[in-house]
Amino acid sequence: MSDAPSSAAKRPPRQTGTTGAGVRKSASKSVRSRSREFALQGLYQHLVGGNAASDIDLFTRDLAGFHKADAAHYDALLHGCIEQATDLDALILPLLDRKMVEISPIEHGIMWIGAYEFLHCPDVPWRVTLNECIELAKEFGGTDGHKYVNAVLNGLAPKLRAAEVEADRLAGKARP
Rank of each mutant, 00 (worst) to 15 (best):
A4N: 15
P5E: 15
R11V: 05
Q15E: 09
Q15A: 08
T19G: 07
S30H: 08
R34T: 00
R34Q: 05
R36P: 00
E37P: 11
F38Y: 14
G42A: 12
Y44H: 14
L47E: 12
V48T: 08
G50I: 11
A53I: 13
S54C: 06
D57N: 00
L58G: 12
L58E: 15
F59A: 13
T60W: 10
T60R: 10
K68V: 08
A69C: 02
A69Y: 02
A69R: 02
Y74D: 02
Y74W: 03
Y74F: 04
H79Q: 10
D87N: 05
D89F: 00
L91F: 06
D97C: 10
V101L: 13
I103W: 10
S104I: 04
S104E: 09
G114Q: 00
A115C: 00
A115E: 02
L119M: 01
V124L: 13
R127L: 07
V128D: 14
N131Y: 05
N131P: 01
E132R: 08
G142E: 07
T143F: 14
N150W: 12
A151I: 00
V152A: 06
V152L: 07
V152T: 04
G155F: 06
L156Q: 02
P158L: 03
K159H: 05
L170Y: 08
A171H: 11
G172Q: 14
G172L: 10
